[in-house]
Design a protein around this nucleic acid. Sequence first.
DNA 1: CTATCAGTAGTTTTT
DNA 2: CTACTGATAG
Length: 726
Amino acid sequence: MSFDYLSKLNIEQKQAVETTEGPLLILAGAGTGKTRVLTARFAHILIQKLAWPDQILAVTFTNKAAREMKERISSILGSPAEGLWLGTFHALCARMLRRHADLVGLNHNFTIIDTDDQLRLLKQIMIASGINIKNTPPAQLLNQIQVWKDQALLPQNITSAHQKNLSADYDVSLYEAYQNRLRDLNACDFGDLMLHMVTIFRQHPEVLKLYHKRFRYILVDEYQDTNTIQYLWLRLLAKRDNNEAANIACVGDDDQSIYSWRGADIGNILRFEKDFPGARIVRLERNYRSTPRILAAAAGIILHNEGRLGKTLHAANSSEEGEPIHVISLLDSDEESRVIAQQIQNLHKENNSYAEMAVLVRAGFQTRPIEEALLRANLPYQVIGGLRFYERAEIRDAIAYLRSLIQPQDDLAFERIVNLPKRGFGNVALSKLRNEATLRKNSLQETLTQLLGEKKLKGKSADSLTDLLDSFERARQTLSKEGHVVAAEQLLERSGYLQMWRDDRSVEAPGRLDNLHELIRALADFPTLEAFLEHIALVMDSDALNQNKERVSIMTLHAAKGLEFDIVFLPGWEEGIFPSQRSLDEGGNAALEEERRLAYVGLTRARKKAIILHAASRRIYANWQDSIPSRFIEELPDDLIKRVAPKQRTSSFGSSAWQRMKFGQKATSFNTEFTPRASTISIGKSVKHPRFGEGIVLDVDGDSLLINFEETGPKRILASFVEIMK
DNA sequence: CTATCAGTAGTTTTT
DNA sequence: CTACTGATAG
């Protein structure tokens, strides 16, 4: 057998692959071939026959990473990799929990509920215990419960020390009540998937032993992002009774730990050698992605952090230094967006593909002005992140219908759709039904069926509810006869849910209908509704669809981790924005270091070119705010950057703000083709825009024109994007 | 029960 | 500015 997976590896990578026995920490810097090593290691263990496929546990954080790994393993092996224990922490825990559910009082077919359901449930519990929801928001407690769960804390483990972030109005008994209610509903929230498994491992050593026997090798991706419970879960699985060294290999990069606010504990990776005595450490420092200049700039920033394991990236292909990092200083945030659009346009003319450019922002609100600028310049873009397919309201509604169909006792799902479309059954009636259901110790759906049978409900609402229940009944029959796809479609149709959107005259309605049809289509990819629901509960990503599109990507720095682009724009490098004020206020120096790691992540996304921008004045919501350049700009080594500033303008723009800019005096002439043509354009002229068509100029403000378009009405457009008509 | 309005808050979010 | 929530009127 000759599998050519080792020859492509460098010496450190090879070492990481071939050191199969004992604990191993692979410190893999950005762009050093981490995924390649992980998959090669996996394949190596199989090919050397050190273990069977089902004796390796491979854990990732994202479904995307799991999918990628699976594909690459298959391609090394030359056959599809089946039966692997490869997946996200949550997916793997769900798989285990289905086998041992009874040990925590659940049935094996438990439902995994989403955030909406969690909140609704907790709200009900709080109202039931007479708490004023207005003063004590359920969301706050829910958040705390999640934090507790991430720390592996059960209700009985909560002490006053764990509650100091929470007002006294939130009693711990609420957490207990929430857990009890979940158990009664045969449901789990996301945190429970891990919490229950850790609980089971701790209370039932015989179960843990099963997995000890099974897993000979453990691989963990993104170890720097593990939180306490994930760490405990791993340690329980890795540490054996006889103190024999576990074959656990963790890959991570302490410099890319950016999720502490979600409970990720950078200490886990820093502590690795202590946790696993005799651990070996392999550093991957050869970067195959970026130019030496970009790497040096990133290094210059991250050097300011303390408490690192220490690691320096070297460019593997260092024949050319590469371009300096551009730092563009601008007057205001509007100009920032315009310059980004302008530069994208220029770079595209120089044969750079849109798909190889990305704009990485610190926070979501920064995307809108950039989107607008790209839209005006008629440049193709996509915003990554935001609402994912399965988070859209109509999809969640449809899912609630499907859950109610196969699990009539799923009250949370039923509540969501009982009055959707409107069936004259609002909050008042719903809480009456809830009370009645509690009395009868029955599900909402069953209780409603009984009440209708007893003729306890009358009028229009009784009719439409009878219709609803009838739709469920018929769909259940269809399910057994014609399969789940037909049944699902029939249910959504007969219940009037699809019609509700057809009747909706809003602009979003057609899109929502499309999504619903897409959902029905996707059902065919799964053998059963149960399999489909499990998939969407755990595999909520949909970015597999968006690849290879010839578009500029706009996303947050967090969302960009793991991705790479030729050219990366980094706007908003201003104190208060990046580093984020809120972060600094709440987390002090630790938070500043995390912000700095974010900057490091941002820069190392770029292969060839990184462009940092900052503005002296930024529009935040309604008003303008002055801002000074980010300290991270000052931390960049001077010889690696090139400062670029627009021409000093004579227009009415705030020159006082400009004066306050730290780099104002250094500002050189703006050297891109950013040429306002306002001089030739005046009020009353007819102009033509590639996207909006023809219009009349109503107002001129510098290079920004107010144009009344024939088709779309007045819009603000950059002068360079329109043509003057004779 | 539903529609409308006023008031409020507004980092990051792999599952 | 806007998107979401809760209270109030119809």
